[in-house]
Simulated assay, not measured.
Amino acid sequence: MGVEIIYHPLRSVKGMWVPDRNLILIRPKMRSFVERSVLAHEIVHAEYGDPAGHSAKHETRANRIAARRLINPREWAELTRLYTDGDKICQDLGVTRELFEAYLNTGRSAA
């Protein structure tokens, strides 16, 4: 895709798509599951050529697609059958609560 990814000390966000520079900024020193989730989210913004800023429509789409890419439907089904604790499920899936909720709210394994 030709997108550059740079670790940069962001204050108010964990990641940021900078379309005019074809660049994704990622806050350094995050836990690996957070970094993975944030990067997947920002990549969706890059793929869709989203403008700078946070539109609810673009954020919802980025979360939904990132969640579908990172969460295995079979693993989801197994973990949700075993546990009722969403945080435990997130930990085992290796995703943030935000992506967990996006997956949950979009019909789970629907394409």
Score class of each variant (00 low, 15 high):
90 C>Q: 06
97 R>K: 14
80 T>W: 11
55 S>F: 06
50 D>H: 15
67 A>H: 03
37 S>L: 06
67 A>T: 09
48 Y>A: 04
81 R>G: 14
94 G>V: 12
45 H>E: 03
87 D>E: 13
62 A>M: 07
78 E>P: 00
37 S>R: 11
78 E>F: 13
70 L>A: 11
67 A>G: 09
71 I>Y: 01
51 P>F: 06
98 E>C: 01
70 L>R: 10
94 G>S: 09
40 A>G: 07
93 L>F: 08
49 G>T: 10
51 P>D: 09
81 R>E: 12
81 R>N: 12
40 A>L: 05
53 G>A: 12
37 S>F: 05
52 A>Y: 13
72 N>G: 02
66 A>H: 11
82 L>H: 01
48 Y>D: 06
52 A>G: 10
74 R>C: 01
58 H>G: 05
64 R>Y: 04
65 I>E: 14
91 Q>E: 15
86 G>W: 10
51 P>E: 11
83 Y>M: 07
100 F>Q: 05
64 R>I: 13
96 T>Y: 08
50 D>E: 06
97 R>F: 04
82 L>Y: 02
67 A>F: 14
64 R>T: 10
69 R>P: 00
59 E>R: 15
63 N>L: 09
45 H>D: 05
67 A>C: 12
85 D>K: 06
75 E>H: 09
71 I>K: 01
92 D>C: 03
83 Y>V: 08
92 D>Q: 13
72 N>I: 01
80 T>S: 13
92 D>G: 00
36 R>W: 05
79 L>Y: 13
74 R>P: 00
79 L>Q: 09
84 T>K: 14
90 C>R: 04
53 G>Y: 10
53 G>W: 10
88 K>S: 03
90 C>E: 09
90 C>F: 03
91 Q>C: 04
51 P>L: 11
